[in-house]
Amino acid sequence: MTESNGEKRMALIASKGTLDWAYPPFILASTAAAMEMEVGIFFTFYGLTLLTKDIKPKVAPHTNPAMPMKMPFGPEGFQQIEWSMPNVLMGNIPGFETMATSLMKQTFKNKGVATIEELRDICLESGVKLIGCQMTMDVFGFNKNDFVDGVDIGGAATFLEFAADADIQLFV
């Protein structure tokens, strides 16, 4: 890869593929690029799915007792109600995950938050390096055609060579 050219550099590892964990790497990367930093994201394990052309990240309410359960519609008072639900139930009701995902997406939309696809497009337009993990591709059966255009493929050494000169390194 490239020698650092005096700009700040940020290196991220994106290892998770749920909706909530898809946001941090794309928000940070697009913003860092807007702040004239050089940015690379290494997508590995479940994070690799964020590179596919058609991404459908879901939230996983089960085993996540910290997740606020609120409705994105109705009067203000109704929206503030916390629908507390035993965690063990959430994991066992069929369709619960799909419902929680669509409610969260609606909440994001209501609050003017960009979609993952929009943020990923901005990353690509602004020159963020998106690196897919070759080993994970082999393990999960992905090939480069499954990914959006502009994705590089590499392994641990590819990432580390880039990250060695980074001012910010985060594992997400």
């Binding site: 928000i27 697009s30 913003t31 807007a34 609050k111 003017g112 938050v113 960009a114 943020l119 901005i122």
Partner: peptide
């Protein structure tokens, strides 16, 4: 109506 990080991205 836009939320983080869109105001910064659109400003840039």
């Amino acid at each position: 109506g836009l939320n983080c990080p869109l105001p910064v991205l659109k400003t840039k």
